[in-house]
């Protein structure tokens, strides 16, 4: 399926990294892919977001203004983008970090307490990967196997010891059922 995804949060939350993993699923499936960061002057702490498009045909505009899949990792990003999701789209967000009641009924909403789950399971800092697992469950944009492979590609060789916890986080998010 074509992917038209926007991931937004604070710099340092691994937002661009999540996007890179998603982009790699398209690479593995030999599709057309684009990954575009929105960047500011600061290296850490500012808002960060990235657009990912995956398609069978060449990607036109690589900026995702109206995502089919929105992932938000902080409240400012939630407020900024919640109304941009196309009707019928999906929003996944970290409900440990975002306390919100969304009134939209035309989109599917998947809150997941990813940061809490990460902390409870000794997977500190991997809330973003837990969210990503839930995104897969909510959208089926690829297979679990391909997403795992993409994750492996994105974990650098010198951080190979982090691969196992990352995969664990992915599975945790994937298996979580939204109440």
């Amino acid at each position: 399926m074509a992917v038209n995804m926007l991931i937004a949060g604070f710099g340092g939350q691994g937002v661009l990294f999540m996007g890179k993993i998603v982009a790699y699923t398209g690479m593995i499936e030999e599709k057309e892919v684009s990954w575009l960061p929105s960047y500011g002057p600061e290296m850490r702490g500012g808002t960060a977001n990235c657009s990912i498009c995956i398609d069978d045909k060449p990607i036109g505009c690589p900026i995702v203004l109206n995502p089919e899949t929105l992932i938000v990792m902080n409240r400012p990003s939630y407020d900024k983008f919640v109304n941009e999701v196309v009707p019928g789209g999906v929003m996944v967000y970290d409900s440990t970090l975002i306390d919100a009641e969304c009134s939209r009924t035309d989109i599917r909403i998947h809150p997941i307490p990813a940061t809490k789950m990460a902390n409870d399971n000794g997977l500190h800092g991997l809330g973003n990967i837990i969210v990503l697992g839930q995104v897969l469950k909510a959208t089926g944009f690829t297979s679990f196997e391909v997403l795992s492979q993409a994750l492996e590609k994105c974990v650098p060789a010198k951080k190979a010891h982090l691969l196992e916890p990352n995969l664990q986080a992915l599975r945790l998010g994937y298996e979580y059922t939204v109440e």
Binding site: K20, A23, G26, M27, E32, V33, S34, W35, L36, P37, Y39, I59, P62, I63
Partner: peptide
């Protein structure tokens, strides 16, 4: 800046 910063295959 868009072409410079974006990743594509």
């Amino acid at each position: 800046g868009m072409l410079g910063q974006m990743m594509e295959p």
